[in-house]
Design a protein around this nucleic acid. Sequence first.
DNA 1: TCTACTGTACCATCCAGACGGTAAAGACAT
DNA 2: ATGTCTTTACCGTCTGGATGGTACAGTAGA
Lengths: 182, 182
Amino acid sequence: MSESKANPRDNILDAAQRVAGKEGAGNLTLDKVACECGMSKGGLLYNFPNKDALLAGMLDRLLEQHKSMMDSEEKSLAGEPNACLKAMLGANACHEVADPGVYLSLLAASAHKPELMAPVKETLAEYYQRLQNESSDPDMATILWLAAEGLIFHAILGLAPYSQSEKNRLFQKLMQISEEAL
Amino acid sequence: MSESKANPRDNILDAAQRVAGKEGAGNLTLDKVACECGMSKGGLLYNFPNKDALLAGMLDRLLEQHKSMMDSEEKSLAGEPNACLKAMLGANACHEVADPGVYLSLLAASAHKPELMAPVKETLAEYYQRLQNESSDPDMATILWLAAEGLIFHAILGLAPYSQSEKNRLFQKLMQISEEAL
DNA sequence: TCTACTGTACCATCCAGACGGTAAAGACAT
DNA sequence: ATGTCTTTACCGTCTGGATGGTACAGTAGA
């Protein structure tokens, strides 16, 4: 009972991500999610009482994963200058490489009910504030962070005109500048 | 007969943008658009034969406006170095300021049917290519462009943790760097 | 047996799109 | 100028299908 069967919540969340990727973020339906994770609709609704809860759950997990990734990045950067910026860039890069679909929840939630995005907005505000307070050159730090965000959003919307390897190079370049130019 | 009554297509497109803003990009329905522009559903479908056509029309107008804005920016920048990058930044900034809702069509189309985004993707690819060919430091130019894109996407999703004036300052900063650092 | 969960059947609502109708503005022939 | 025909632009209704959500009966393990 240790292999391949995580807790049902995560199974469902994974399935929802897959559906969002395949059908388009706005066409995520309960039926499709239930089908995708080999569960009945009733079972799905037992775990998430309604669609809003499912979307909120997706966002919540995304935020949590992102946060823990940032924390570990930051720990390994110890007291380096601009550790905060570097950790944020690193978290964005890693997360995106691990599974490009994780960020689809942003699109799905925002399409369905923009209010659900409130926690995301809060988190972003925290990050931004830290960037302002802990960077030697806040404006430049903001710009580098925004560039990383741009990379992510291009990926979410399937608009990226550059290859995966070019994207990785750009992420590295961002890291590099955040050491050199600040 | 000269005032306030533009052609019906543009009226509808404007109404669709408003609806996307109010109800969320994924909740744009033909009924709501028809109601918003004071027209019946039948009338709407006379102008746009189906929903896909409406979304495509929104994207098309966005792309056209953006292109013409870039052209005029570029003309006024004559042969300056990195004119391409500066024009792109300028077009993004101006367009966003003029009406933050214009870009909502990206979200709406992408939620409803990602395939509709193909023309957007093409346009982006052209821009990116030009940036590579016509910039003295392509990587840096790309990063500045991505930062501008990040600003836009934050705005679309209502996630921006900075004020309008801070955003304007950031746009100016981008312009400035594109003169100095390249 | 109790708890935790599954699966089915069903309902009310919403929505895209089809369709038939209509009013007004020409076009054309007489 | 008059009557007929056509086109343009739009309206309002209807329908089939999808969708979110509920109710409930069933089941496996503790």
